[in-house]
Amino acid sequence: MSILEVRDIHKSFGGNRVLKGVSFSVKEGEIVGIVGPNGSGKTTLMNIINGVIRQDKGSILLMGKDISSLRPSGRAKLGMGRTFQITRLFSNLTVLENVLIPLHYGSPLPATEETAIEIIEAVGLSHKIRDRAGSLSLAQRKRLELARAIALKPKVLLLDEVFAGLNPVSIREIVELLLKLNREKGITLILVEHVLKALFKLTRRVLVLSEGRLIFEGSPEGMVKDPEVIKAYLGERYLKDESA
């Protein structure tokens, strides 16, 4: 059964049609990547799935239930976690408090410090528990966002450019962490990503979005050979660089 179903999503901002009928479905336990050029509507799609923005037309189903009318908080309680392209932490609160908030308000897990500390340890921030979230480095901020999302005990986790701006070491560590979450906790992952190398380590299925439409759906190997994807996103140089 598909855990998440996106049905014919349309969205315009004024006269700018950002999404022109996007549909796809994700199976439980799957890892799906969404790629595409800047301005193709990836983040808008994420925002619609999570409920921050409302679609003009179409619907979102989580475990077969239409969640289109729910606020993001309602979706979070049903098991939808997310991270943001530009991190959105509770900067003046501590790392611990950042994780306690979803535990108290959106999670079936016990809202105790022990649970929070366990989650913080899992993302490798145990040494920062009492620090202000605003004092963290970018890589640490991304880890904390991940911890905050995990605290919801999500069934589906939406990750918006989680690797952007990170060094290779951090990227490798987060890839491993995500794989672990997927394997051990069965969390379905949907990643919007530009860092293709990292993405391809995670996923066997990629969707390509271009000008508000899905132009490709399939394996990473198929994607890099698809002429339309090359034209819209990768560019001729990608092929040369890869073969070189």
Binding site: P72, S73, R88, F90, I101, H104, G106, R148, A149
Partner: peptide, 25 residues
């Protein structure tokens, strides 16, 4: 209090508060 956490979350970042389960309205 836990109640205060919800308010502080809203103060810090409303979108993030919603996404972590706080009914901001």
């Amino acid at each position: 209090s836990v109640f205060g956490y919800a308010l502080k979350a809203i103060r810090e970042d409303e979108v993030a508060a919603e996404s972590t389960g706080v009914n901001t309205v």
